[in-house]
Design a protein around this nucleic acid. Structure first.
Ligand code: NAD
Ligand code: NAD
Lengths: 225, 225
DNA sequence: GCGATTTTGTGCGTTTTTTAACGATACTTA
DNA sequence: TAAGTATCGTTAAAAAACGCACAAAATCGC
């Protein structure tokens, strides 16, 4: 499927990466609708990025399209999935079995996408021992050992912000490859560990800014980011 | 406090706005520690943005600092809070009282910050009638009327993606000023309604990208975004 | 099978964003 | 109070991101 042309994908800008999941979402919809092929122009009017940007984004990874034809929906979907690393399974633990930790554990879609929550961890003895969506809540004393023994790939931090750095340190020590952080704090992790923050409050405050008189109104079609 | 110099804040770039909540978080910490003043250089080594960028960002809104001194922590915190629109109260409803809707309703910090959840809405009769964190779960039949009657400012969408656009339409019709969307879909809203998306899956997939071999490693101190 | 048409991949100019440099200004201390 | 120092606000330069335009290549219709 992919051409033999070798691209250096080691320094793709963050802006490009952030758009990939969005491409994938639209391609998934198109697949579901039974659409076989799509041109950058058609994609553009769906997604809201310029056709030029779409072509340029995709070309960072390889020539997935064909002149005069466009892109094969199924093929492109698979390529992007592979680029994102979604063609494998990720073992995860959630640390902090409170509101958010439980909500994530109950969310079944990730499992289907290859993200498997193996265990939850908490310090609260009233939570330890529970089963949430068939996943055990374990005592966080055993976190490091569990992560090591079960070769956990990703740690999800859903504790209060005061404990987050400590948890992150433990997770990194135990060998996770990435951390998905929901605590409202910026964590320090070693270079070889990936970090993705979900700062919900920051997002809400951004919304407040847009709503309050200070901000310019969205002039366009409701796309952003 | 603020100088009389008039700035045109109607076309501040999104990149700047996204950094404001982060400035505010660090200033809050400094306040808590009893720090009175801070220079752009000191802030830089805390936050990880260049001192130059910090000064330029802040200058978009006014000259909050003083030469030879720096910035007054308390004053700057208040200025940024005001810019973000956090010096008022927002009335909110959550549509979709599932995992995520309940997690948000249970989260008490937003209340303190002026974001008050007035009601949850759901179609599921088994959820309607419940009280979550002292907030009623109402039948979503009455959504439009409730939003109109109670002058709700913001709608939070926590339903499945298939219903999200319909809910958004109702919320907009009923007069909300902004929508915080957690459904994995890009919504269309009128120009005068602000929209902020939290695409959790996109964030997770970005993490997968960074973890998978494709990505370049984070060369620095663990800061990003 | 061939010409008209479509559409990509890509070089290049433009815009946006970030970083650097520095004069102006206010603080600090002796 | 005045010299010296710290630090901002701002302008200029550099870098990054984006969009335009077009040649090359493949498709599609006849
Ligand atoms: N719930 C939300 O809507 C929301 C919104 C914005 C931000 N957040 C952030 O997400 C994080 C979690 O939020 P939440 O609402 O689930 O909080 P929560 O209080 O419901 O849950 C936190 C859980 O972490 C556990 N915990 C604390 N220290 C721990 C440790 N050292 N090891 C293991 N477990 C530990 C607690 O026992 C608790 O069960 C917080 O940092 C919060 O600021 C949540
Ligand atoms: N929970 C997570 O961890 C998670 C992660 C990523 C994305 N999301 C997204 O967030 C959204 C909510 O997730 P969730 O886990 O809370 O799902 P959920 O299924 O637990 O809750 C959805 C709720 O919405 C209600 N609902 C459906 N249609 C409605 C309508 N028309 N009006 C009012 N209520 C309606 C349902 O009855 C249900 O209670 C989904 O779009 C999901 O894709 C959730």
């Amino acid at each position: 499927m992919s051409k033999s042309k070798i691209k250096d994908t080691t320094k793709i800008s963050n802006a490009v990466i952030k758009r990939l999941p969005r491409y994938r979402r639209y391609l998934k919809e198109l697949k579901k609708k039974g659409v076989d092929k799509i041109s950058s122009n058609e994609l553009s009017s769906l997604i809201g990025y310029t056709a030029s940007q779409i072509r340029q984004d995709l070309n960072n990874f390889g020539g997935f399209g064909q002149q005069g034809y466009g892109y094969n929906v199924d093929g492109l979907y698979n390529e992007i999935s592979a680029i994102l690393g979604l063609d494998r399974e990720y073992k995860m633990v959630i640390v902090g079995a409170g509101n958010l930790g439980q909500a994530l554990a109950n969310y079944t879609h990730y499992y289907r996408a290859g993200f498997v929550v193996k265990a939850l961890f908490d310090v609260n003895p009233r939570l330890v021992g529970l089963r949430i969506n068939d996943i055990d809540v374990l005592d966080s004393e055993g976190l490091v050992e569990y992560v090591e023994d079960n070769e956990i790939d990703l740690g999800i931090i859903c504790t209060t912000k005061d404990n987050a750095q400590e948890i992150a340190d433990k997770l990194c020590f135990a060998g996770v490859k990435g951390i998905w952080n929901f605590a409202q704090v910026d964590l320090e992790v070693p270079n070889h560990v990936a970090l993705e923050n979900v700062h919900l409050s920051d997002s809400l405050y951004t919304l407040a800014y847009k709503v309050s008189g200070n901000a310019a109104q969205n002039g366009g079609a409701g796309f952003e980011e």
